[in-house]
């Protein structure tokens, strides 16, 4: 039975590589997902103002629609979507006023029954890293990979409950090892890349991006993986800008974890959307 899947806006436009590679890799592992009918934008950011209920309506509608499917789960891979949907679900489940306001507005009965899952959790819990290890080729052998989680997957810990330690998640490193590559630990893995400030305080974001890139490279990383299209953009596009001004700058490809997994699973390269990456990962992956 197919698990309902929520791609989100960015995966249909700028980050088609994340959408394509997520679908292709899950399919290669026998996990069938089906796009949730009539989905809308999730709202992108969780409203932190106590009285902003409107900012939660879109996510609530998506969660309610998912609850009408048989599976009981909803899969989403974009870190922002995952964060908003999970936090709104948590609020509906645990805060009576939020639940009442949102369900009355939407004229639905819902108490947070939908279980939101990230593909990293599916790979760990449904496929299992031991099983995955037996299915991969050896194309990634010897490649050093830095796993960049950013902010949205694991914070706030009490609501996200993503991995064991919010400040030091390890599920992506475990995936890297299972894919046959070499996981490197680096201290910037849950720091923020600067996010939407790229449009307002650009220099700040360049500084954060440089810290993250240099931190990964200092540990010998040859590629960085992430699940967030905004982290991916900031870490990838800004490198091109840095390199225009500094010819000695060493670029490092920034991939979605699903793109790297696709290589390990022999998914045809045209299904991985690698052509949208600014720093070309092909020289590394063709070894």
């Amino acid at each position: 039975m197919a698990i309902p899947y929520f791609p989100g806006c960015t995966l249909k436009t700028k980050a088609t590589g994340l959408d394509d590679s997520t679908r292709a890799t899950l399919a290669a592992l026998g996990l069938e997902v089906a796009e949730l009918p009539e989905w809308t934008c999730c709202g992108t950011v969780y409203p932190l103002a106590q009285d902003n209920y409107m900012g939660k309506v879109a996510a609530a509608r998506i969660l309610i629609n998912a609850s009408k499917e048989d599976d009981g789960r909803l899969v989403t891979v974009c870190s922002f979507c995952y964060n908003v949907l999970k936090r709104v679900n948590h609020a509906i489940k645990n805060d009576e006023e939020t639940r009442t306001k949102l369900t009355q507005f939407l004229e639905e009965e819902y108490a947070g029954e939908t279980k939101l899952v990230h593909p990293l959790e599916l790979l760990r819990d449904d496929v299992g890293f031991d099983t995955l290890q037996k299915k991969v080729n050896n194309k990634l052998k010897g490649i050093k990979v830095a796993s960049y989680y950013g902010c949205m997957l694991s914070r706030p810990a009490a609501e996200m409950q993503f991995d064991e330690e919010s400040e030091n998640p390890t599920v992506m490193e475990d995936l890297v090892s299972a894919m046959g590559a070499e996981a490197v630990d680096f201290k910037y893995k849950t720091t923020c890349c600067g996010s939407y400030q790229v449009m307002k305080t650009y220099d700040l974001v360049v500084k954060k991006v440089r810290e993250i890139l240099e931190g990964a490279k200092a540990k010998g990383a040859q590629v960085i993986i992430t699940s967030c299209p905004l982290c991916q953009f900031n870490l990838d596009w800004i490198q091109e800008k840095i390199a225009e001004e500094d010819s000695s700058f060493d670029k490092i490809p920034v991939l979605y974890f699903t793109q790297l997994l696709g290589v390990a699973l022999d998914v045809p390269v045209e299904k991985l959307g690698l052509e949208k990456n600014y720093v070309d990962p092909k020289p590394l992956l063709q070894g």
């Binding site: 992108t44 974009c78 939407y196």
Partner: peptide, 14 residues
């Protein structure tokens, strides 16, 4: 060039 999520998140916050 920015992903759509940058626009929606940025405008919602700022």
């Amino acid at each position: 060039e920015v992903p759509q999520m940058a626009l929606t998140s940025g405008f919602r916050k700022l």
